[in-house]
Design a protein around this nucleic acid. Sequence first.
RNA 1: GCCGGCGUAGCUCAAUUGGAAGAGCAGCUGACUUGUAAUCAGCAGGUUAUCAGUUCAAGUCUGAUCGCCGGCUCCA
Length: 581
Amino acid sequence: MSKTPLKSTGADLEALRHSASHVMAEAVLKLFPGTKLAIGPAIEDGFYYDFETPGAFTPDVLEEIEKLMAESIKANHRFERIEMDREEALKFFRQKDQIYKMELIESIPDEKILFYKHGDFIDLCKGPHVVSTGEVKAFKLLKIAGAYWRGDEKNKMLQRIYGIAFYNKKQLEDHLNKLEEAKKRDHRKLGKDLNLFSMQESIGPGLVLWHPKGALIRKIIEDFWKDEHLKAGYDLVNTPHIALLDLWKRSGHLDFYEENMYSPMQVDEFKYEIKPMNCPFHIAIYKNQIHSYREFPIRWAELGTVYRYERRGVLHGLIRVRGFTQDDAHIFCLPGQLEEEIKKIIDFVVYMLSTFGFKEYDVYLSTRPEKFVGSQENWQKATNALKNALEQKKMKYEVDLGEGVFYGPKIDIKIKDVMGRAHQCSTIQVDFNIPEKFDVSYIGEDGNEHRPIMIHRALMGSLERFFAVLIEHYGGAFPVWLSPVQTELITISDAQLEYASSVKKKLEEKGIRVHLDDRNEKMGAKIREAQMQKIPYMIIIGNKEMEDQTVSVRTRKGDQQNGIKIENFISEINRKIDAKN
RNA sequence: GCCGGCGUAGCUCAAUUGGAAGAGCAGCUGACUUGUAAUCAGCAGGUUAUCAGUUCAAGUCUGAUCGCCGGCUCCA
């Protein structure tokens, strides 16, 4: 048995990717001597390395780096582990003027500092690595980006190169294909192709124009949302878009949220502020009268449109915008009702999201951060309630220590789309701040005033973001119940227009969203366009159908059935619509 | 906000070293009357994001601004 293996076991993709980042750093140093190295870890699907170079990397430099990497891989250098003591290590990097590495050593408590060496390249590194560079067979450098040293925007910005690496070419190809597929599903592209929404320079960044087809889908979502809330024991409320600046002073938003709020506007002799959140309004409704413990839980929901200032660089399609509509609700309850309410919300979230086709979630429980309001005892109770609810609902979750909002602990639910990507949408937060600020109270069994518990929750998060995720999840091919046009009527020639109109009328009478393509085009052209618009059903009408008083049905998947009675088609499509698929 | 890239017709993209702004699709008009993913012809469509500059000459070079894209930081 040889002492050192000739090849890694193949179990550790992370080691492979980390090794690739070393090989990349070696190449960058060769190409740009004097480059200062920061960090180069493995990440999901790949790796990156942060550099400081005198000039900026250009995209074509990636190819040159790849070539140099290929040489190092061909040379099949072994990765060797080296130990130095602290002084030696610092001296080593001081000679090379590697200031970031010196800073990194400062934060390593051990006396022995680990290095890995392959060929002439030595890097501070605790490993592990693959056995030799020759194992890095399938890699590709993807993009250049800016990144702050240690992720802090007060620090210098470095240049980061991202790459991906896999065990073999096949996996690499598969991954690149997946990226291509994601590009095709991009909601910004589909939003344009399917004429769902736009954002325009003349309107302003981060402000969404919902076009008729997008607005129709939104209406379906909103109707469903409202109906389900009424069924679930919520009341619907509506509140204004602006309010006196004083409201936001009292709520504390001006203290802790000002950087996300727009400047106030002057109206008569008063200052008004456009709302970044809905909570103060719901509180105002609550405070408009005295409440008894007997009323609890009180659940108020609103599709509330809020406006938040977001730095320009963070805007992204519908995912991150400046004006958006939250599917907001606030629940006032007794301490003893908290856990039960959380459980109900979890059920509601799962029901809602699964109706839209999302069956997989990543769940996070965020606990008390360093800066917080409210008593430690209340935090503990609320956090336990959230935790118990998750456990009783058998939800797998991760704890995000200290990642809660300053006003209370929270559960975040990220949905996973069909590509396996996670999106932050749902959130359930306990709020100790607002009830305090507004002196919210109820009359208890004892006749005295008490402070209720307030839960803030959103199921979809914002309609804009949810719509983006929905578009990408379905790749624009919405299920029938959500499709803006459910059936396209396609005539073969003008001779069938009259019959087609009567079919259209019959479908419309049954509430089916139908469009008649009465243009003087060939059938093939009409089918092609309906197909590209991802319309679920195409009804083809020629002389044959007209004589038999039937239709031919083609689905967007390409299935084809001829001689269908209109009534049968209607009951079939309505069955699907009712089943919400 | 920061680093880098990009911005030509409604859409997708051309335009050689700085040397007359172009194509396909979409639109409009007309012809054709069609059997499962593009019928043909004609017409129209532009302050090349905006503003300044260099030059005999700028889509192309320089600067500023705006917007978008990839990231970082931040987040529904």
